Amino acid sequence: MTVKLQEVLESEKSILRNFFSLYLHELSNFTTNLDIAEDGVFHFEELDKFWEVDGLSPYFIMLDDKIIGFILLLERPFLKKSNDYGINDLFILNKYKGKGLAVQAVRKLFEDKPGQYFVMQVVENKRAVAFWKKVYNGLNIETQERQDLIDDELFLIQTFKV
């Protein structure tokens, strides 16, 4: 099973919107900042900006020709500080979790875009925290880690170079 990353085209926005709703539903287990809308969907209001602002780069995670998730990569010129890249969001469908596919996607991203990274997880999202620790250990990446309060939510933030 080979994983690849495919840049999300603006014409595929509705597909990404559907995946983002699933992602936000999952994330709502760990934060009080997310609620379902009256129409029964979790909305990400900033989605349109992905194609309006340079440096907000969404990628589908593909398995063969099937979309199984996405990564939202922050890069320059959106990022102006010491990091070249930030992984803001990573989501993979439940059916594909635990098979090493998300790790393959991250490895592919790091191979394609080496540089200084940061990654953030909500502290309460123990599965995400464990996933990223597994990635760092498996790829022999040394990180600097800190906690920060963002929008009244406690986050773990790791910085590292690949």
Rank of each mutant, 00 (worst) to 15 (best):
S21G: 15
V119Q: 02
P77G: 09
E38H: 13
V135I: 14
R107P: 00
K66R: 14
K81L: 11
I15V: 11
D84G: 04
E10Q: 13
V123P: 03
S28V: 01
D151A: 10
F160R: 07
N33W: 03
I67P: 10
E10Y: 03
G86I: 03
N140H: 09
K133G: 00
N137L: 09
E142G: 13
V41L: 15
E75Y: 05
K13L: 12
V129I: 03
S57Q: 14
Y96R: 01
G69N: 03
E45A: 06
K108T: 10
V53Y: 14
F19N: 01
I92L: 09
K80V: 06
L93C: 06
L72V: 07
I87L: 15
D151T: 02
E52L: 13
P58I: 04
E145P: 05
R17G: 02
N94C: 00
G55A: 08
I87D: 04
V3T: 08
T32F: 11
K134F: 12
L139W: 08
T32S: 15
D84Y: 10
M1T: 05
S11W: 10
F160S: 05
N29Y: 12
K66V: 13
I67N: 11
T159W: 08
S14H: 13
K134H: 14
F70C: 06
R127N: 12
F110M: 15
M62D: 02
N137T: 09
Y23D: 00
I157S: 02
S11M: 11
E145N: 11
L79I: 08
E7W: 10
Y23E: 01
A130D: 07
G69M: 00
D152Y: 14
